[in-house]
């Protein structure tokens, strides 16, 4: 096994997902098969690979100009609850 249930649960915590232990076990098995395949990368020599040259890169920038998005009703139409211009959400405890 490359990955065990505890590791799956740790990753789930990072990803904000929940799995029952049975689900985690199933996922660990699937991961095993997938990660097994990932071993195939080991066989490819990569030392000779150049990183893409800097001349090739064209940095994309925009001008510093301010524009206001006017239609706020549209902008917040998917928000569950607004209050005095704020987005109201369930209590966030620090």
């Amino acid at each position: 096994m490359k990955i065990n249930v505890e590791e799956v649960q740790h990753i789930a915590k990072l990803a904000k997902l929940r799995f029952t232990n049975e689900e985690a076990e199933k996922m660990a098995k699937e991961f095993d098969s997938i990660l097994g395949h990932f071993q195939s990368m080991e066989e490819v020599p990569l030392e000779d690979t150049k990183t893409s040259s800097k001349e090739e890169i064209k940095t994309v920038l925009r001008k510093d100009e301010a524009v206001i998005f006017e239609d706020k009703a549209k902008l917040f139409r998917n928000v569950k609850q607004m209050r005095d211009g704020y987005i109201q959400v369930p209590k966030i405890i620090e």
Partner: peptide, 24 residues
Amino acid sequence: ETKSKIFCSCPTTFGAAPNAHTCP
């Protein structure tokens, strides 16, 4: 001290009404 935000064109001025300076 820029006129607009780092990745969009919303203004950066302090003290605007809540969410007045937001966009998609």
